[in-house]
Design a protein around this nucleic acid. Structure first.
Length: 499
RNA sequence: GCUCCGGUGGUGUAGCCCGGCCAAUCAUACGGGACUCUCGAUUCCGUGACCCGGGUUCAAAUCCCGGCCGGAGCACCA
């Protein structure tokens, strides 16, 4: 009997919680999050930050933020993005115990590859790309594979000395040319790239590949667990050769599948970049883009994003989720905080005959917040804006309730003629005829930047006190008030959060 | 093509390792009612799933085999 009661108590505060991490010991876990800063963090990056960060927290462990920025060309790092990643990580509530920039540690990787060459576990390969591909596909060792280490080392020195052109020489890790998975066979660890690096300039012309750099760094930083996308699942198989050669122990790994967000489709960092350059998007924080910066701008709470990802878990199957789930999480957090205001989209100015001076009403009090209480006031005017969308729904003779204000009767739709029809709500209470409105005297222009299209209309003057905050435009959506233009129109700019 | 991985309601997810307590959890979505001077919140009720076919077993969502479907890797990208 008692047990039953306890169970019921626990049921109500059920938090999305990550399953236990295999072989994890409290205080000894070291996780890492390793992005390429070729653009700002996206929703996808958030998953990496949250899952890894959360496990580090759960086990009182450490979190290493490592920038895998070793390709200055194909995945060229963006200078500002380094700092943005740190900001976004902090926003989500995680702190990196250590921040590592791979591009600044290239000499460390040189030392390791030299050792491997000396040991005969890596070699300098002079095959052309497609030439090697043929060897790999047919499982035959290339002629350079069994070069004596001294010769490989010699070529390596020449690579570093700039005596080779791009593509003429690479360093490969010996695995097994007969490995049943061709993807594993003698992979490239270093290649020549004549391109200035945004962070380290022209210091290097020989760069390590992700597989090599990552393998070395994970060991050097004592990473105990790696959780990443399953696109990197083969990395593990490749990197394990290095671990074997050095006698190191490979971290415990876990992978998540591909995630597709219905609303954003296949937007990748590089495609967003292209659209920004073309001018389709205004920037990395354009509300139409799935970056964390954009979501923050829209007024999402990091806690909602966190819960959203924790609820997805770390399964290996590919998923396709809707932003509606994120909206639901966010709504739970902001509904009670957001103050209520009226925003009239596509405003139509109407005149109501017979309101003025009635019973001495000058101002109308409207509730400001459903939990905190408070109120805002609007002038009891006979000239008000209502939304075109609402107007369309009514016919002549209909009685419409202007929320918290009065009832009006539509007399002549064509000439927008309305007549005062009483103060009491009574008859209007049921149904869809309660609408929001704005007195001309208290309204300002407003534009709402939204994912599908921008909305323009009129908003209550009082929102100027809500800059930076998320409010709810009643019967419209939650929006974040971004600012007020300084020009004579003093237009309010808001960003759409979600319905 | 080769190599891996995965398939639980519309969408996610728990359960699968250690078969029975699963006529399958939770969230979200959807439908309907109540409440509220918001198309928000709250509340009540409801709809809805173990990919298919064999096998093992007293018993299978759970184990085995085959098929189908989906995805990833096969880059001098990350």
């Amino acid at each position: 009997m008692e047990k039953y009661g306890e169970e019921r108590e626990e049921r109500k505060e059920k938090e999305a919680i990550l399953p236990p991490l295999p072989y994890a010991e409290k205080g000894k876990v070291i996780m890492r999050f390793a992005p390429n800063p070729n653009g700002p963090a996206t929703l996808g990056s958030a998953r990496g930050m949250i899952v890894n960060g959360e496990y580090a927290k759960i086990y009182d462990g450490k979190l290493v933020l490592r920038f895998d920025d070793t390709d200055p060309r194909t995945k060229r790092p963006m200078l500002e993005a380094y700092e943005w990643y740190i900001e976004d990580l902090a926003w989500l509530g995680y702190r990196a115990d250590e921040v590592v920039y791979a591009s600044k540690r290239i000499s460390v990787y040189y030392e390791h590859v030299e050792k491997l060459i000396e040991m005969g576990h890596a070699y300098a390969c002079l095959c052309k790309k497609d030439e090697f591909k043929r060897y790999r596909d047919s499982g035959i060792e290339c002629p350079h594979r069994n070069l004596p280490p001294e010769e490989s080392l010699d070529i390596w020195e020449k690579m570093l000395g700039g005596e080779f052109e791009e593509g003429e020489a690479v360093i490969r890790i010996k695995t097994d040319m007969k490995h049943k998975d061709p993807a594993i066979r003698d992979w490239v660890a270093f290649r020549i790239i004549f391109e200035s690096h945004p962070l380290v300039g022209d210091k290097y012309i020989v760069y390590p590949t992700l597989d090599f750099e990552s393998a070395i760094e994970d060991h050097l930083h004592g990473i105990t667990h790696i959780i990443r996308g399953k696109d990197l699942i083969d990395s593990e198989r490749r990197q394990k050769y290095i671990y074997k050669y050095f006698g190191w122990e490979y971290p415990v790994t876990k992978h998540w599948g591909r995630i597709k967000i219905h609303e954003f489709g296949k937007l990748s960092t590089s495609s967003i970049k292209k659209e920004i350059e073309k001018g389709t998007f205004t920037g990395w924080d354009d509300p139409r883009v799935p970056t964390l910066r954009a979501l923050r701008r829209r007024g999402f709470e990091s806690e909602a994003i966190k819960k959203f990802f924790l609820s997805l878990g770390v399964g290996e199957n590919d998923i396709s989720v809707s932003m509606k789930n994120l909206y639901a999480e966010n709504r739970k957090l902001i509904d009670e905080k957001a103050n209520r205001y009226f925003f009239v989209e596509s405003p139509v100015l109407i005149e109501i005959s017979g309101v003025e001076g009635v019973e001495g009403k000058n101002n109308i009090k409207l509730p400001l917040n459903p939990v905190k209480g408070g109120f805002r006031t609007l002038k009891a005017s006979n000239r008000v804006y209502i939304s075109e969308n609402d107007l369309k729904r009514f016919e002549e003779g209909n009685v419409i309730r202007l929320k918290e204000f009065c009832n009006i009767r539509l007399i002549d739709k064509r000439n927008l003629e309305f007549k005062f029809a009483g103060w009491k709500i009574e008859g209007a209470k049921k149904g869809k005829n309660i609408i929001h409105w704005l007195p001309v005297e208290d309204s300002m222009d407003c534009v709402v930047l939204a994912p599908e299209r921008d909305h323009s209309g009129k908003v209550e003057r009082a929102v100027v006190n809500e800059v930076g905050k998320v409010v709810q435009f009643e019967r419209f959506a939650f929006c974040r008030i971004e600012g007020v233009a300084r020009n004579e129109s003093s237009e309010v700019r808001a960003v759409y959060t979600h319905p």
